[in-house]
């Protein structure tokens, strides 16, 4: 070790700036949560602690409908995206490059490269035509659109895991004349499971987070939590918005904590 007592890790000023950064990140969210417990009717006046806005939200049918839509939408879209992304990852990894691999890879990342607002208006144009032609106005459009832009997110961790996976076990299984499907089910899948779960969670959060595409595509009565919140923000800026926002914040914390525990147990 250096006798001049130099530690490059100690960059002067980094720690205070980092702490400032965390304070900046957390203060607004803390105030938001704090406001949600305000007994006062409007956000201007503080009238003591109360859970009334949470109670109001839980009795608000529009909010409950939006929560239900969001949950159904995020679950189905994330499931579809994860299954499809797993198949795609099995296709593009662990082999010599094959014809068309580059185009598949580009295609899989395409939704990441197009701005959300552009994708939203593009989908608006095409879905309006399909709705008019078929008369079907169900949740299907949102589910498929969400699945499409969630695929790249589910794909990333699964692909990374597959690339880092040791092939010896599978080769051994194949040597023992196990069928390809049997090998996949008994050897590959269990090894891949954590990555698939991570991909699913990523896709779920991405779907839950989406405002723009849902806002443009929704049919009447298909508000998701974020689009409901966006509409509510225009109508009334009451403490109920803070309660709903805080609930969404809680969901994020739970998901992050959940994935954290999952990955930590593994290592």
């Amino acid at each position: 070790m250096s006798d001049r007592g130099f530690d490059i890790r100690r960059l002067p000023g980094a720690a205070p700036l980092a702490i400032t950064c965390f304070v900046i990140l957390y203060i607004p969210m803390a105030i938001l949560v704090f406001n949600s417990f305000n007994a006062g009717k409007s956000i201007g006046d503080w009238e003591g602690l109360s859970l009334q806005w949470y109670a109001a939200a839980l009795q608000n049918e529009a909010f409950l409908n939006a929560a239900r839509t969001s949950l159904i939408l995020a679950t189905i879209s994330a499931l579809i995206a994860t299954v499809i992304a797993t198949l795609a990852a099995l296709s593009t990894t662990r082999s010599k490059t094959f014809r068309g691999e580059a185009s598949i890879n580009m295609l899989l990342n395409q939704p990441l490269m197009v701005p959300e607002i552009v994708l939203a208006i593009a989908l608006l144009i095409i879905v309006a035509q399909i709705k008019q032609a078929t008369g079907y106005a169900g949740l299907g459009y949102l589910i498929l659109a969400h699945s499409a832009f969630c695929i790249p997110f589910a794909y990333m961790p699964i692909r990374a895991r597959l690339e880092g996976m040791d092939l010896t076990l599978e080769t051994a299984a194949a040597d023992l004349y196990a069928s390809r499907f049997y090998t996949f089910r008994k050897v590959t899948l269990p090894l891949l499971a954590p990555a698939i779960l991570a991909g699913f969670m990523l896709a779920f959060v991405i779907s839950l987070d989406d405002v723009v595409i849902s806002e443009f595509l929704k049919s009447p009565g298909q508000d998701t939590l974020p689009t409901y919140l966006l509409g509510e923000l225009r109508r009334n800026l009451t403490s109920e918005i803070y309660a709903i926002s805080s609930l969404l914040l809680l969901i994020s914390v739970l998901i992050v904590a959940g994935s954290w525990l999952l990955t930590r147990r593994k290592t």
Binding site: A85, S91, G100, L107, Q110
Partner: peptide
């Protein structure tokens, strides 16, 4: 491998590229 990637290719083509 193309068959495995087909669902992804289809859904992204229909819901991201075609629009």
């Amino acid at each position: 491998r193309w068959a495995l990637a087909l669902p992804a290719v289809t859904i992204i083509t229909l819901f991201s590229i075609l629009p």
